[in-house]
Amino acid sequence: MPAREASTSLNRAIAILKVLGTAEGARDGVGVVRIARLIDREKSQVSRTLKTLAEAGFVVRDPRTLRYRLGWQLFTLAVSATQQHLTSLAPHLLRQLVANVGECAHLSVLDGGAVLTVLSESPPRTEQAIQAEEWVGRVAPVHCTSAGGALLLDHTEAQTRSLLAGQPEMDAKLAALLDRVRLARRRGYATVNEDFEPGLVAVAAPVRDYRGEIVGALNISAPKFRLGRALAAAGREVRAAADGLTRALAAHATNRRIS
């Protein structure tokens, strides 16, 4: 395919996806004739492009109305983009959080029924720097971690129960986790006090994407003798940092839509 023709086809596909991303497309779907009229293209061209997009999973056709909507493959890419933006925007907020609290800070995400640490920052003290590096890539249970409590803030009891299904002493773990989540909803942050590891306390707050959905959690963890008495103050700092990352994700999404 000549470069010029390929460019035209790509532009046509982009125009179609933008039409399907409007309120009209989300509500009722859009038919071929309507799309062709809106983007000022021939119906046959639009049909061919829609067929290609459907084969790739970017659009779906309602067999009853014959109208098109955005497909799940597009939403999958959007989620992937959000994760990339999350890890690219988080380091600055983590460094600021470390400067304010003086302890190791982490970015965690929900990985199935566990909490996965994907980024860490530490104060310029060798011992704590080593501890922070050890957290990256580490998987921890949701039921006894502050990040787990923050990441499950929007989960129903049934959803939370399903995450713990099959675990020993599930009822006791579920009760403790639900209590932690309820308290976190009121405070805006979740805490653990030696629940995960003896002598360790931690606090975490949720990070949301432009849709308001929780996509990660920022948390501070430290020995109890250092942070135990200042856990509430650290919680407010973590919540402020998480809110800042949430705003950064929303602003990035807005800028992308405008451009």
Results as ranks from 00 to 15, higher is better:
residue 93 L to S: 11
residue 121 E to Q: 02
residue 60 V to P: 00
residue 91 P to D: 01
residue 125 R to V: 15
residue 52 T to L: 11
residue 85 H to P: 01
residue 73 Q to A: 15
residue 130 I to F: 13
residue 125 R to G: 03
residue 92 H to T: 14
residue 65 T to L: 07
residue 96 Q to I: 03
residue 71 G to T: 12
residue 107 L to T: 07
residue 91 P to I: 07
residue 119 L to F: 03
residue 64 R to Q: 12
residue 93 L to V: 02
residue 88 S to K: 09
residue 91 P to A: 06
residue 106 H to S: 05
residue 98 V to K: 04
residue 89 L to W: 07
residue 60 V to R: 06
residue 86 L to P: 12
residue 76 T to I: 13
residue 72 W to N: 14
residue 120 S to W: 14
residue 109 V to C: 11
residue 94 L to G: 02
residue 129 A to K: 14
residue 69 R to W: 07
residue 121 E to T: 01
residue 131 Q to A: 10
residue 88 S to H: 09
residue 103 E to I: 11
residue 58 F to V: 07
residue 84 Q to M: 14
residue 52 T to R: 09
residue 74 L to E: 13
residue 53 L to P: 02
residue 72 W to D: 15
residue 99 A to M: 04
residue 100 N to V: 14
residue 111 D to A: 10
residue 73 Q to F: 15
residue 128 Q to L: 12
residue 93 L to N: 02
residue 90 A to M: 00
residue 117 T to H: 12
residue 52 T to S: 15
residue 114 A to Q: 15
residue 109 V to S: 00
residue 95 R to V: 10
residue 106 H to E: 07
residue 108 S to C: 03
residue 105 A to Y: 03
residue 93 L to Q: 12
residue 57 G to R: 14
residue 103 E to R: 00
residue 68 Y to R: 05
residue 96 Q to S: 14
residue 85 H to L: 15
